[in-house]
């Protein structure tokens, strides 16, 4: 099995607070291709920081994040932009979509930045929106979509460019039960069909129950790392 991400003694200290905050402490983990991992833990346990650091949005204070053989902590900002573009998909808790673009344009956006051919981009965007059940919303802007539909567009966008892995920061937090189940069904199906590695930070029991691996963070350190056969 191919290792997609490996973190070595990852630490993150925020020094701009009154007292230094140790958001991550010596976190060493490996993520295998096709894994569906839930990062859980109480608020302030370092879940979002962990996702930000392995997503290249934030730099670790110590340690390394190796993705596809590259330590991303050593990359310059412009190199990181390119790296994220080619390797990582993101789904956030809220404000996921570009409000002035239609669903199709949002899904195509990363492929557009990757300079993929227009026809291929349109075909893939349409295919992904069909997969998330939004084939009737291709030309609709985010403002006219429900919260659940917006998250499904975000998932379609994150997966459309075929990244090595998708980081999802509490994607179901603002969704009602039905929408949350819908989204999870879609992500679980795409995880299996496209063999994409999914890493969620979540409090949501519904997500945890579907994950093949659950990592519990407490005070920035790994307290538990459990695998499930699902």
């Amino acid at each position: 099995m191919k290792t997609v991400i490996r973190t070595n003694n990852l630490s993150k200290v925020y020094k701009d607070a009154a007292a230094p905050v140790h958001a991550l402490k010596n976190v060493s983990l490996e993520f295998i291709q096709g894994e569906f991992t839930a990062i859980v833990g109480p608020s302030g346990s370092g879940k979002t920081t962990f996702l930000n650091v392995i997503g290249g949005l934030d730099k670790p204070t110590e340690g390394s994040v190796v993705i596809d053989g590259v330590d991303i902590a050593t990359l310059k900002e412009s190199q990181l932009f390119d790296f994220r573009l080619r390797h990582i998909g993101f789904v956030f808790q809220s404000y996921n979509l570009i409000p002035v673009l239609t669903a199709t344009e949002n899904v195509s956006f990363i492929m557009l930045l990757q300079k993929q051919p227009k026809k291929e981009m349109e075909r893939r965007a349409k295919e992904m929106l069909e997969q998330v059940g939004l084939s009737d919303k291709l030309d609709v802007r985010p403002g006219k979509l429900s919260g659940g539909q917006q998250q499904r567009v975000a998932v379609a966008r994150a997966l459309a460019s075929k990244p090595d892995f998708v980081l999802a920061d509490e994607p179901t937090a603002n969704l009602d039960t039905e929408s949350a189940f819908n989204l999870l069904d879609i992500m679980a199906r795409l995880n299996k069909e496209e063999n994409i590695t999914l890493i969620f930070s979540t409090h949501d029991q519904r997500v945890i129950e579907r994950a093949s691996r659950v990592i519990t963070l407490v005070d920035g350190a790994v307290a538990k790392d459990e695998a499930f056969d699902r």
């Binding site: 932009f81 994220r84 993101f90 404000y95 996921n96 409000p99 990363i110 930045l113 966008r157």
Partner: peptide, 14 residues
């Protein structure tokens, strides 16, 4: 600000 952060995260350069 959030939109800019999103665009950065998606890979749009400064």
């Amino acid at each position: 600000q959030k939109e800019f952060a999103l665009l950065f995260a998606l890979g749009m350069k400064r």
